[in-house]
C-alpha cells in the first residue's frame, strides 16, 4: 500500500539544522507545502532519498510589511501572505498574486519559497511514470528529446508558472540565498535562467526549462524582499481554464506610476509563458507621455517579441501569447486610469 517510495524525513526547527541536514543528505529535497513536490514523487518524476520539511523553521516564517518595504520568509504560507493586511495595503500586486495561486486549500499548504522556485511544467513532464515511459520520457527527466520542440537540440521548453515571481519582479525584489558557503543576496530576476535559446548551449548561468534556476548545489531561497516605491500602482491578474486549482494560461503583474497625464514608470511581468517569468524590457520607451493607442501598440510589440509560449500545456502557445498581451493591455489601462 506504499503510495510513495521510502525516504528519510527530517524536520529541522532552525536554519542551522537545515544546513546540517543538507550537508548530510546532499540530494535531499526541501519540502514546503508539498503541493507540487509530493505529486512529482508520487508520479516517479523525482525520487529523493531524503526530504527536509521546512514548515517548522521559525526563522523563515515571518512577514514584515509596511510603508517602507516588504520581506517575506520562504516558509510563509500563501494564505498568510494573501491575507496579510499590510501586504494588501502597500503591495497589492503581491497579495493579489498570492490569492490567485491554485485553490484555497492549496494556499493553506503551499509556501512562498516553493512558489518562487516552483518547478517548471509541461504536458510531457507532469504525467505518470507509465505515461512518460510510453512516450520515451523527455529531456526534463531521462529522455533525449523535447517533445514540445523535437528539433530543439537539447533545449527544454517546460514553462514556469509561479505567480509570486512576476509580482515581486515588478517591485524590483531581491532574494536571500543560503548555502554551505554562506548567505548571498541577489536580484530576484537573476535567479531565473530559463532562457531556452536554441542558438546558445545550456549552461549554469544560461539555462532552459530543465535548468531554470541559478541556485548552486545545496543552496536555497530563504526570503524575498522589496522596497516600497511611492506612487506605484500595482495589480495582478491571470487567466486559466477554470478559475481555481488550475495552472495559468498566462498571468501578468503590472506596476506603474503616473504623473499628471504621463506614464512615468511601467513594469510588466508574465508567468505561464516562458521557461522563466518574463519582466518585459524596453517599457521605458512607452513612458514619458500619456498611455494611448500608440503606447498600447508598443506594449503589444514588446509582448510579441519577449513572450515565447510553446505547446507545453493543453492550450496552444499562440493562444497563450495572445492572452498574455490582452491581460497586460487591460491591466495597464485599468491602473493608468484608476
Amino acid at each position: 500500500m506504499d503510495a510513495l517510495p521510502d525516504f528519510q524525513l527530517l524536520r529541522p526547527a532552525s536554519l542551522g539544522d537545515v544546513l546540517k541536514a543538507r550537508t548530510e543528505y546532499p540530494d535531499a529535497r526541501l519540502l514546503g507545502g508539498g503541493t507540487d513536490l509530493m505529486v512529482n514523487i508520487r508520479r516517479g518524476i523525482v525520487a529523493p532519498t531524503a526530504l527536509i520539511d521546512m514548515k517548522n523553521v521559525t526563522e523563515l516564517r515571518a512577514i514584515k510589511a509596511d510603508a517602507k518595504g516588504i520581506e517575506v520568509g520562504a516558509s510563509v504560507t500563501l494564505t498568510e501572505l494573501a491575507e496579510h493586511p499590510e501586504v494588501g495595503k502597500y503591495y497589492p500586486v503581491v497579495a493579489q498574486a498570492a490569492a490567485h495561486i491554485a485553490g484555497p486549500t492549496h494556499r493553506n499548504m503551499g509556501t512562498v519559497g516553493g512558489n518562487i522556485c516552483l518547478d517548471t511544467r509541461c504536458i510531457y513532464y507532469n504525467q505518470s511514470e507509465w505515461w512518460r515511459s510510453a512516450n520515451n520520457h523527455c529531456l526534463k527527466t531521462t529522455g533525449t528529446i523535447c517533445h514540445v520542440a523535437p528539433k530543439s537540440r537539447g533545449v527544454c521548453f517546460a514553462t514556469f508558472s509561479g505567480d509570486l515571481a512576476p509580482a515581486f519582479l515588478t517591485l524590483g525584489a531581491e532574494v536571500d540565498i543560503i548555502g554551505a558557503a554562506g548567505l548571498r543576496t541577489v536580484p530576484l530576476n537573476s535567479i531565473y535562467i530559463g532562457f531556452a535559446r536554441q542558438d546558445t548551449p545550456v549552461t549554469e548561468t544560461f539555462g532552459d526549462g530543465k535548468y531554470y534556476l541559478s541556485l548552486r548545489p545545496g543552496e536555497f531561497v530563504t526570503a524575498v524582499r522589496a522596497k516600497n516605491i511611492s506612487g506605484l500602482r500595482s495589480a495582478y491578474d491571470k487567466i486559466r481554464i477554470r478559475r481555481s486549482i488550475e495552472y495559468p494560461v498566462a498571468g501578468v503583474a503590472v506596476a506603474l506610476r503616473r504623473e499628471g497625464d504621463n506614464l512615468v514608470d511601467l513594469r510588466v511581468a508574465f508567468t505561464g509563458t516562458n521557461p522563466r517569468p518574463v519582466l518585459l524590457t524596453g517599457t521605458e520607451r512607452l513612458c514619458g507621455r500619456t498611455f494611448d493607442e500608440r503606447a498600447l501598440k508598443g506594449l503589444e510589440e514588446l509582448v510579441r517579441d519577449q513572450v515565447m509560449s510553446m505547446k507545453t500545456t493543453f492550450t496552444p502557445g499562440h493562444y497563450r501569447r495572445r492572452v498574455a498581451g490582452v491581460l497586460a493591455r487591460r491591466l495597464v489601462t485599468r491602473l493608468f486610469n484608476s
Binding site: 519540502l31 503541493t35 509530493m38 520539511d53 484555497p104 486549500t105 499548504m109
Partner: peptide
Amino acid sequence: CDGGECGACTVLIDDRPALSCLTLAASVQ
C-alpha cells in the same frame, strides 16, 4: 485524484483545510 486536484481528501489541520493526499502523516506531529 491522488494528486491535489479534487479536494475529496480534505481534512482540517489546526482548523485550516488541507489535502491529506499530499501531506505526510509524520509532518502533522
